[in-house]
Design a protein around this nucleic acid. Structure first.
Length: 275
DNA sequence: ACCCGTGTTCGCTG
DNA sequence: TCAGCGAACACGGG
């Protein structure tokens, strides 16, 4: 699931499902301790059970949940990892496959934190002081909430010789950008993902910044709609180049999309359109 | 059987 | 000191 668009949708869903609701109980599935690192599921439950959900905010791929118990704020920091998602079920319904935590609400619903690969995280933040948490404090400006400052992005590219596509996934530079969005943005901007950061001209950086926002907005709009998420049952691949090795480029319709590996991750590019 | 994977972190190296 | 790299984390799907 999770890059910025999926986390944005998850945040909107939870906002609609749980704002103003009281958390009745939190149960973890046996053997999933590290989802609740470092303090464990019991500690998380002690911190948040009985509290009322007040707000849900996304920053990059992090979800910041604010609750309140006895007038005291308490935070919940949630990250979906590679395969995480939030699903809502009625109490008593069978848990979805790979449900790792169940958060029962006072309206008869249960929120399931579902995560096949177990790279996701749920963690209590005392006093909801998120800015004291390194994973949050280190994030750059959010591309959707704050917009992308092309000048700052250009400065960041100048600072390292990493390939642009790899550099874009640095959460301190473009929080929320992951492997798919980075590759899609390079394609949309017509930029070869192997280019070194310092080689980009200001106009190219500006194009890339716009492409990141466009790719994310398109992905969010799609997931708002009726379509099933990619990798879910029978979902059509909604991306322009991601996972399309060997197919014709959707832009030039001539060259075929090539797959390459950068920093251990797959990148897809059109050899003709991306220079 | 074997390879792959929408993310992050840690240890090693030059 | 630090940027960059590869492995590790864990597990199912193709």
């Amino acid at each position: 699931m999770p890059e910025l668009p999926e986390v944005e949708i998850a945040t909107r869903n939870l906002r609609a499902w749980a704002t103003g609701r009281r958390l009745v109980s939190l149960e973890a599935t046996r053997g999933t301790a590290y989802v609740f690192r470092p303090a464990g599921a019991a500690s998380l439950a002690r911190s948040v059970v009985g509290a009322t959900f007040r707000s849900f905010e996304r920053r990059g791929k992090q979800m910041l949940v604010r609750l309140e118990r006895d007038r005291e704020p308490v935070g919940l920091l949630a990250h979906l990892g590679m395969t995480g998602k939030w699903l809502r079920r009625r109490a008593g319904e069978p848990a979805p496959r790979f449900s790792r935590a169940r958060l029962a609400l006072d309206d008869g619903h249960v929120l399931h934190f579902v995560d096949l690969r177990l790279f996701g995280r749920l963690r209590a933040i005392p006093g909801a002081r998120f800015d004291e948490v390194a994973e949050v404090a280190s994030l750059g400006a959010d591309p959707l909430v704050d917009g992308i400052d092309a000048g700052r992005l250009a400065a960041a590219f100048r600072r390292s010789r990493l390939p642009v596509k790899v550099r874009m996934m640095d959460q301190a530079i473009l929080p929320g950008v992951g492997n798919i969005m980075a590759g899609e943005a390079c394609f949309r901007a017509g930029i070869d993902p192997r280019r070194r950061g310092p080689s980009l001209r200001p106009a190219e950086v500006a194009r890339l910044a716009g492409a990141v926002v466009d790719a994310m907005k398109d992905a969010i709009a799609r997931e708002q709609g009726p379509e099933i998420a990619y990798v879910e049952e029978g979902g059509e691949n909604p991306f322009l180049v991601y996972d399309r090795a060997g197919e014709r480029c959707p832009r030039c319709r001539k060259a075929r999309i090539a797959r390459l590996v950068q920093a251990g991750r797959s990148t897809y590019r059109c050899p003709r359109c991306q220079r």
